[in-house]
Write a protein that binds this DNA or RNA. Sequence first.
RNA 1: GCCCCCGUAGCUCAGUAGGAUAGAGCAUCGGUUUCCUAAACCGAGGGUCGCAGGUUCGAAUCCUGCCGGGGGUACCA
Length: 553
Amino acid sequence: MIKDDISVMVQEAAARAQKAGDLPEIALPETIIERPQRAEHGDYATSLPLQLARAAQAKPLDLGATLIKHMPESAAVERLEVVPPGFVNFHLSPAWLASQVDEILEAGPAFAEVSVGNGEKVQVEFVSANPTGPLHAGNGRWAALGSTLARVLRVAGYNVQTEYYFNDAGTQIDVFARTLYARYQQLFGRDVPVPEDGYVGSYMVDLAGQAREKFGDTMLSPEGEPPPDQLGRYGMEQVMDWIRRDLSSLGVEYDNWYREQTVYDSGYFDKVMSLLREKDLVTEREGAVWFATSKLEADKDEVLVRSSGLPTYLATDVGYHYDKFIVRGFDRVIDIWGADHQGHVRPLQLATQAMGIEEGRLDIIIGQLVTLRRGDETLKLSKRSGDIVTLREVIDEVGKDACLFFFLSRSADATIDFDLDLAKQQSSENPVYYVQYAHARIAGILTTAGERLPETEDGDTALLTHEAELALIRKMLHLPELVEVMARTLEPHHLPHYAQDLATTFHDFYEKCRVVDEDNVDLSRARLKLVAAAQSVLATTLGLMGMDAPDRM
RNA sequence: GCCCCCGUAGCUCAGUAGGAUAGAGCAUCGGUUUCCUAAACCGAGGGUCGCAGGUUCGAAUCCUGCCGGGGGUACCA
């Protein structure tokens, strides 16, 4: 990346200046190369002179001049300048910019790749909703975020595995099975209530109906006796199918589906308990087993095993993370949780660290919740309250791509206020279509060119000198830098904004520069290359978000 | 009470290790098409970056306090 090249140039300049005695032998900070907001300030800039001024006991402007004096030559940089209060600005050479079109075309989708991951083994776990009901709209946010983050990390050079963790046993599954059985019995005229804390959603009635179609009355136990296990298992498998199908409609597929029961069957739970005991971090009182987080930093302990003998979610999760780090050997693990799980972050972090996992290897992204509205009416998202808006409904109403784009465009730290009416109403005036239209427009140009232009040799990108052409190239060059930022910050929400930006720059170019021109075939050929490069970068960007890049609209 | 997140244009939100005159979309108003897709483009208005201190050459960004909104604070997940 040119940004890295410039960073190296600045370091080299500072080192040469010190060697030549023009700069005191002071410690040099990490050189940060920024993108100036204003075009007149060039393509890249460094504020190193401002940062060094105090230690070097010199004026920033003089330091800037010294850096420029010792700056290595580069074909990419046409002009350097130092400006008040002490920035060194780098202006890229138009000829070099034009030549990048060939590079982008040659690289294809690999153009976005950067090598910051060094093949590190990373797991991204997201959604992981229990199979006790269909996914709700909020889950779609984690699906969009997680799958996109995984793709971004792959492009950034990480070895990524995506995973969905689900309960196939435990309290909630038990409640689910008992609810299903109650609904099933009701279909046969038995007057039994849905259990307290049961799942009152109407989908449970549908599910019971499906079970009756499949099994007839064979799942009916004598009154007052528990149902056969098979009924609950059947229900759970049905719900898992719904979940898989809904995720799949968002283009989200997983590398691995992980059953909670594995934590027990493989002995990880026992292993983790004894590990924590060895560290003297387990206490027992009031009939329960506790994780003594108060010995570490917390103000209260956490229950690991209830007085009923059943392990808590936390205990299982610790065992699960033992599997991730110790057994499967992930270098890094990224969990994406909703804000309602925020209280579990510290206990799990403390537990993994107690197992000897270095701090920083476990990232838990807490995403703020989604509020759904239809106009002024706020809709509930809780599965147990029954009246949920499913992810399926949202996808059907607004479309897969709009859904992804919208969920992705907000930072995980911000709550999402999703007005279904508005999303639907705006669907034709949507940024989603704006971006996709740019891609389709290019496809149209390429088709037209094939029909109208005679066969000639390859275009010469050196002919690309128009301001709008250069602006488009500059914008394309931004993508790898963005991938690097997103991989570092784990914040893919920049992607939709970049896509929109790139589309705007293309549309502007389109207005100003005619591509297919029979009277100027050479320039046409050069512009066709530029346009093809833009299409490639747009498609790559859309692909990172899991969105389609249509050839016509 | 304590912990986490948020507060930026009328609305929805960006602002990437603190940088140079704070941005986009939508909405509002005005303009652009004999020509590769007008699902487009150009222009205009609109801001005490919640408030008050502090750190810094420089703060929307970092620190402290306060105000407002959301989430958590269970032997639920």
